[in-house]
Write a protein that binds this DNA or RNA. Structure first.
Lengths: 334, 334
DNA sequence: GTGAAAGCGCTAACAA
DNA sequence: TTGTTAGCGCTTTCAC
C-alpha cells in the first residue's frame, strides 16, 4: 500500500512528477516565458492529475497582488448591497478575483477594523457601497495605497464613482405615463434631504412643466397611503397618474386607492421606483416601476476596480448608469 | 528633505527602528516566546509609530492558517443570507477572521469555481448557506481538507449543521394565540415539500389537537389572499385566529380580511413567520410574527467554524436554535 | 532574553 | 528552451 501524504500538492510535486524544474513548471502552468508546447501540456496534465492547485497566498506574497478585493458596506439588510455585491462578484470571479464582504453598519470602529483587515490581506482594491449618494464613508478612504471605487456613495472629487441615473429613471417613468395619455401626474416621494429624491423630482418637474406637484415625505407605505388620502379627499381635479419615489411608497399608494375604490390603472396609473420584486410583484395590480440595474452597477464597479488595480487609467468622477422601465399592470402599459 | 519610500513597512523596518532582530520583533508583536516586557512595549510602540501592519499573506503562508473563511451561498437576493452573513462576519472579525462571499446562484459550475478559489486561498473553513433545509449544495463539500458548516442546508450525517427550530417557533405562535383565548386556529402555509413547512405544521397540529386545519399552498401574498377567501365565504364556523407560514402569506391574509371587513385582531388574530421587517412592519395592523434569529444563527456558525478550524471538537449533527416571538398589533397581544 | 537561520510555496531574473 | 537561484514577509526552532 502506497502511503500518500495528504498534504496539499505543491509546484514541487508537479515539477518532480513531470521531470522538470519548478520554474519550468511555473512557466508552463502560467503560460509565461518560453516553454515548449509539448512540455507545457504535459506539465498541465500532470498538475491536473495529481490535483495541484496553486497557493494563492504564496503567489500573492511574491507578486504583490492578492487577487482579492474588499467590499465595505453600510447597508446591512441590504436590498441595495446584495444585488450590487452579486454583480461585483460575478464579474470578478471570472478574472480569478474573490470578494471580502465587510458590513460596517455605518460604525466607524467596525469600519476601521475591517479596513485594516483588508489592508493586511493586501487586497487589490476596495469598493465602498452605501445606501445614499450623499453619505460619507465611516472611515477615511481617500489616501489609501490601493484604489477605491464608490458605489451609491460619495467619494472625493477625483474618485471613481458609480450610481444610477436618477434623472433618466424619473424621465423614463414620467414619459411612460405621458405616452399613455396621462396629463395630471403627481409625484409622491421620500425625504427632500436625499439627493436622489431631489434629482428625481427635478427631472419630473422638467417633464411636466404644467402643474407639476411634488409631495415629499418618508420612505414608507404609510406615507404613500397618507399622501393619497390627503390628495383625494374633497373635490377638485384629481391626478390621473402617480409617480412614486419608491416601490414601498407605491404600495401604500395602491392600497389607499383601492380602499377608496379608485381603479388602477383606469382612473389612476401608478409607477414606482426600485423594482424591488417582493414589493412590485405583490401589489394588486402588479407595479410598473423603474429598475436601477444594481447588478450592472456592480459589474461596472468590479471592472473598474479590476482596471485600476492593474494600473489602468479609469475615468474619474461620477458615472451614472441608465435605469430601465419595467412595465406591469399598474400603469396599464404593455 | 528625507526621502521616504512609500512601500509598506515590514517587520524588518520595525526591527531596525527598534534596534532588535526580526525574530525578537516578531515575538514582541505577537506576545510569543520569552521577551523582555520593556523590549516588547518598545517594539510595539515603534511598530505603531511607523505604521507597521503585518502582511497576512506571508503570515498565512507560514502558519498555514489564512484567517479567512468562505461563505458559499445559494440565495442571491437573500433575505436569509444577508442577516446570516452579517452574523458570521460580526463574530469573526473580532477574531481577526475575514469572510469571502461567494454567491453560487445554485449553479454547479459557478459553485465549483468559487470553491476552488476558496481552497486556493487556503481558507480555514467554509460555511454553506441555502434557503431550504432540504436542499443539497451544488458542489461536493463532504470530503474537503477543511471543515464545513452548514446553515439552512443539509450536510452529510456527521456534519455540523445549524438551523432554526421550526417546531419550537410554531409552538410559540400557536401557544401565543391560545394564551390570548383563541381556540379555532387555522394554519395557512407554503408548499408541503418543504421540510420546514412540514415541521411547523406538525408542531401546530400537536398544539391544536382538536380541529387543526392546515392549508398548504405557495409562498406568496396571493396564496394568503386566496386561502382566506376560500375559508370565509359561505356560512359555518370561522377561525378566530390564523397562523401563517410566512410573513408574505400573512400579508395576503391581512389584506383579504380587511377587504372582507373582518377586524384584526378582534375577530381574527394573525401571526406570521419570518419577522421580515419590511413586510411585518408595514401590514395594517403591524404583524405579530416569529423571528428565526438569523443573525444568531450566523454567530453560532461563525463560532463553530472558528472552533473547527482550530481543531476543536464540535458536536456534529443538527443544532436547532430557538426562534423568538415578536408581538405586534395583529394578534392583539401585548 | 535575544538573534541567526531556515523555509512556507511561489515567481522572475538570469545563466546555461 | 530549461534550470538555478534569490527572494516576497513572516514565524519558529535552536544556539547563544
Amino acid at each position: 500500500m502506497t502511503k500518500i501524504g495528504d498534504r496539499r500538492r505543491t509546484i514541487y510535486d508537479v515539477a518532480k512528477a513531470a521531470g522538470v524544474s519548478i520554474s519550468t513548471a511555473s512557466n508552463a502552468l502560467n503560460d509565461t516565458g518560453r516553454t515548449n508546447a509539448e512540455t507545457r501540456e504535459r506539465v498541465k496534465r500532470i498538475a491536473e492529475e495529481i490535483g495541484f492547485r496553486p497557493n494563492a497566498l504564496a503567489r500573492g506574497l511574491l507578486t504583490k497582488r492578492s487577487h482579492a478585493v474588499g467590499m465595505l458596506t453600510n447597508d446591512t439588510y441590504g436590498r441595495l448591497t446584495l444585488p450590487i455585491t452579486a454583480g461585483v462578484s460575478e464579474v470578478l470571479i471570472d478574472h480569478g478575483v474573490s470578494v471580502f464582504l465587510c458590513a460596517t453598519n455605518n460604525n466607524p470602529r467596525l469600519a476601521k477594523l475591517h479596513l485594516d483587515a483588508l489592508l493586511d490581506r493586501q487586497v487589490d482594491g476596495i469598493i465602498f457601497t452605501a445606501t445614499r449618494l450623499d453619505l460619507k464613508p465611516p472611515v477615511e478612504l481617500s489616501k489609501l495605497p490601493i484604489p477605491v471605487v464608490y458605489v451609491f456613495a460619495e467619494g472625493p472629487a477625483d474618485s471613481v464613482t458609480f450610481f444610477p441615473d436618477d434623472e433618466q429613471g424619473a424621465r423614463l417613468a414620467v414619459n411612460h405615463l405621458k405616452a399613455l395619455g396621462r396629463s395630471r401626474i403627481l409625484h409622491i416621494t421620500g425625504p427632500e434631504d436625499y439627493l436622489a429624491v431631489r434629482l428625481r423630482a427635478r427631472a419630473y418637474r422638467e417633464c411636466c412643466p404644467s402643474g407639476a406637484d411634488v409631495m415629499f415625505g418618508e420612505w414608507s407605505e404609510e406615507w404613500g397611503h397618507e399622501a393619497v388620502e390627503r390628495v383625494f379627499v374633497g373635490s377638485g381635479e384629481k391626478p390621473d397618474a402617480i409617480f412614486c419615489g419608491s416601490d414601498e411608497i407605491a404600495r401604500g399608494v395602491i392600497d389607499a386607492l383601492r380602499d377608496m375604490n379608485i381603479s388602477i390603472p383606469t382612473e389612476v396609473a401608478v409607477v414606482g421606483f426600485d423594482n424591488w420584486e417582493v414589493v412590485a410583484r405583490q401589489t394588486r395590480p402588479p407595479l410598473t416601476t423603474i429598475d436601477m440595474e444594481l447588478k450592472e452597477l456592480g459589474h461596472q464597479a468590479g471592472l473598474a476596480i479590476l482596471g485600476l488595480s492593474k494600473g489602468e487609467q479609469i475615468a474619474t468622477g461620477i458615472t451614472r448608469l441608465p435605469c430601465s422601465l419595467v412595465v406591469r399592470q399598474s400603469s396599464g402599459g404593455h
